[in-house]
Each structure stands twice: as structure tokens, then as C-alpha cells.
């Protein structure tokens, strides 16, 4: 089976970490890293590892479209809109790691294959990737009337884009809690903690469910879901056991990263790149199978 060629736009931390994850894929071939700063660490690393590099951003990539089948965008929501228009018009598959949310939200354990026909898939947010599986796990047992997530990340793992546009996290995550998680109403909170040494990403899901009395089934469903997420984020785990209080369910999670490029405390960044790589891998398998 042919491996699909991958381009990554954005040679920052996310793009660089993603490159290492693509290298491990059996269906993807790392092809080109696209940046705008020739001196960036990500571009240097890509070059050292023998990949093509484009140093003048999307314009440069558009001249070398033969290098890519699937393009990840790890820049900003604003830049992504422009990138996506050009790439989709050129017939490329686009996986969006920015909060632009042009294409449908994709969370691997919940709706991995659902939107593969779409040209652009959005990876929600780190908090969304960590918590929406749990909301879905509850919702498949008892309807979730309301779900709220609290993502606490170390200050060091929050990049300048996230910091400048923190409302985008809140809005995008809330929407995805409803659209993908299945909650009737969603809310998201993000907290930055500067403690040293940096804390692991923590996520809490609070949900109000339609009826009590199915605690055991919900707990089983959550545990199965945690195992599913662990298949691509091994450091994803429950803290304690799910807590039930009438119709309220609280679930505590922590996410330790794989340490590919980010330090392990940055579970928030790792779960984004791991989820994006997982989606691309499955997409590549389907596309390659269709070509045969």
C-alpha cells in the first residue's frame, strides 16, 4: 500500500512534535515542513532528518503541491482560513490544528471516520480532545443534559497563540462538547498554572445527566473509553474514580505526553498532535485502499 505524503505548515512546537509522530505511522510519509522563519528550530530539524523544507510559507508550498497528499496546519486560526482555501481548491486533504474550525470537529474515539469525505477536518482543542471522549462515554449510557470541562495546563505549555486568543479555546471547546460529545449544553474553562516543575495537564469533566441509577454502566463506559484514548495517547489516565452525586457526574483526568518533542508535562500539546496523527493515519489507509 502506498504511503500518503504529509506536509506540515507551522514549524513551531506543534508542527515539530507532529513530525516525530508521523515518522512512526505505517500509512504516512513525512514529506515537507513549511515555515516562514528559515532559522526556526522546526525547519532545521526537518532538514536534518532529510525532509523537504519550504521557508516562504503557503506560497512556497503551493508551488510544490506534488510533495503533499495531506497537509496539517499548525499555524493560527486567521492564517488557516487562507491556507485551507488554497489547499482545498488544489484537492488536498487538510487537517486543522488551529481553532479556526472551518471543517467538522473530529475526535478520534468518537467520530473518527464520520467526516472523511470532507476536505478539511478540525481537531477541536487540547481540552476538547481530552474531555469529549468522556462526555461521549457518559452520553452513550444516559443522555447528558449539560457538560462542563475544566482544563488546567502548565503555563509553559501555553503558546503565544493560545494566550492571545484564550476565548477561542472556550468557545470552540464548548461547541464541540455539544456537537461531538453529545451534551445538550456545553461549557469550557481553561486555567494556566505556572508551578515549577510544570504540572501535567489535568482535565475535569462535570456532567448533569438525565437520570441517576446507572452509575455502574457509566463507570464501565468511561473505563472503556479511557482505554480507547490510551491507544494513541498512552499517558491519558483517570485520577481516582468517577464521582456520582445524584444526577451529577465528575471525572478527573490527567494527560502525560509521549515526550516526542515536548516535555511530558505538555499533555495538552501531545494529545492534539497524537489525535491529529491518528486521524491522518486512518484517513490515509482509507484513501490508499480506495486507490487500489
Amino acid at each position: 500500500m502506498r504511503k500518503l505524503k504529509v506536509g506540515i505548515i507551522g514549524s513551531g512546537n506543534i508542527g515539530t512534535d507532529l513530525m516525530y509522530k508521523i515518522e512512526r505511522s505505517d500509512a504516512l510519509e513525512m514529506s515537507v515542513m513549511v515555515g516562514i522563519d528559515p532559522e526556526s528550530e522546526g525547519l532545521k530539524r526537518a532538514k536534518d532528518r532529510g525532509y523537504e523544507v519550504v521557508t516562504d510559507g503557503i506560497d512556497g508550498l503551493m508551488e510544490r503541491l506534488e510533495l503533499v497528499d495531506i497537509v496539517f496546519d499548525a499555524t493560527s486560526a486567521k492564517a488557516h482560513k487562507h491556507h485551507s482555501e488554497l489547499l482545498v481548491a488544489a484537492g488536498k486533504k487538510v487537517i486543522d490544528l488551529t481553532p479556526a474550525a472551518i471543517g467538522p470537529f473530529t475526535v478520534p474515539t468518537v467520530n473518527l471516520n464520520e467526516h472523511f469525505a470532507q476536505p478539511n477536518l478540525n481537531m477541536v482543542t487540547c481540552g476538547g480532545q481530552a474531555t469529549i471522549p468522556i462526555i461521549n462515554a457518559i452520553n452513550r449510557v444516559v443522555p447528558v443534559e449539560y457538560a462542563e470541562i475544566v482544563a488546567t495546563i502548565s503555563s509553559k505549555s501555553a503558546g503565544p497563540g493560545t494566550r492571545a486568543n484564550i476565548d477561542e479555546f472556550t468557545r470552540t471547546t464548548s461547541k464541540a462538547i455539544e456537537q461531538v460529545g453529545g451534551a445538550k449544553k456545553g461549557k469550557a474553562i481553561i486555567i494556566l498554572n505556572p508551578a515549577e516543575p510544570p504540572i501535567l495537564m489535568r482535565d475535569t469533566v462535570h456532567a448533569l445527566i438525565a437520570e441517576g441509577g446507572k452509575e455502574e454502566e457509566i463507570a464501565v463506559s468511561i473505563n472503556e473509553m479511557v482505554k480507547d484514548v490510551q491507544s494513541y495517547v498512552p499517558g491519558y489516565r483517570l485520577r481516582g474514580t468517577p464521582q456520582f452525586d445524584g444526577q451529577k457526574v465528575s471525572v478527573f483526568l490527567e494527560v502525560e505526553g509521549a515526550g516526542d518533542f515536548f516535555p511530558p508535562y505538555s499533555g495538552n500539546l501531545d494529545i492534539m498532535t497524537a489525535a491529529a496523527a491518528k486521524v491522518a493515519n486512518e484517513l490515509a489507509k482509507q484513501l490508499a485502499a480506495a486507490e487500489v
Partner: peptide, 20 residues
């Protein structure tokens, strides 16, 4: 643990781990 404002969820997490 140097908890910051807003981390109310951590209270329950810590209490549960003490109980265990």
C-alpha cells in the same frame, strides 16, 4: 501543589486521593 485560582476541581481530586 501551588494551586491557582479557579482550580476548585483539584480540591475534590486531592480529597479523594487522601481518602484512598
Amino acid at each position: 501543589m501551588k494551586a491557582v485560582g479557579g482550580q476548585e476541581d483539584l480540591i475534590y481530586d486531592v480529597a479523594q486521593s487522601f481518602a484512598v
